[in-house]
């Protein structure tokens, strides 16, 4: 008998894949804003999958950082660049067919590789379950991963300075 969480997995996985498809290959609209909106929906459904995997903090971060901050930046740039002419362009049929073939081949290989794994390796490991709450995650982040964490803050600073430099008007 399937559990309720298993049902939820199929709901969220289906929604993630559906919205992801609509994000990259929406048959009705080729407007970048539509893609951005479907990407937001994809990310939110993926946060649902994170919750099912007991990664509660990451689900919250996913929604706050991706669906919030990153997508707002995307929408800002879409607003700044006037992209109306994009919809009128013709699709390149040959490239599209080649893309579909290549990607479905890759998908077939990867899915085959995943399903060929030994079943014993796939079961939930025994022992006390590691929950992705803030407390255990924070403990591991500030004990084992303190140096990468500090490097990351420098990376963010560098990115910030770089972005300011790049968006100056007279870029030399």
């Amino acid at each position: 008998m399937p559990e309720f969480t298993d049902l939820l997995f199929f709901v969220f996985a289906g929604l993630t894949l559906l919205f992801g498809f609509l994000c990259v290959a929406n048959p009705l609209s080729r407007n970048p804003v539509t893609s951005a909106m479907f990407l937001v929906l994809t990310i939110i459904s993926m946060a649902g999958l994170f919750v099912l995997l007991h990664a509660f903090f990451l689900a919250a971060v996913q929604i706050l950082v991706y669906a919030g901050a990153v997508m707002v930046v995307f929408l800002f740039v879409i607003m700044l660049l006037d992209l109306k002419e994009e919809a009128r362009r013709k699709l390149n049929r040959v490239a599209l067919t080649a893309g579909v073939l290549a990607v479905s081949g890759l998908a077939a290989i990867l899915v085959r590789a995943v399903t060929a794994a030994r079943p014993a390796a796939l079961a939930l490991k025994a022992g006390p379950l590691a929950e992705g709450d803030t407390a255990p995650l924070g403990r591991i982040l500030f004990q084992s991963y303190l140096l990468p964490f500090e490097i990351l803050s420098i990376l963010l600073l560098v990115a910030m300075v770089g972005v300011i430099l790049l968006s100056k008007k007279d870029l030399r």
Partner: peptide
């Protein structure tokens, strides 16, 4: 639901992204 299910979803999502990179022509 096993690890396999999640990995298959991940693979399919990755392939969707790759298809978007190959097929779409808008940088954004």
């Amino acid at each position: 639901v096993t690890l396999n299910h999640y990995l298959v979803v991940s693979v399919l999502l990755f392939c969707l992204g790759l298809f978007g990179v190959l097929a779409r022509r808008n940088v954004l």
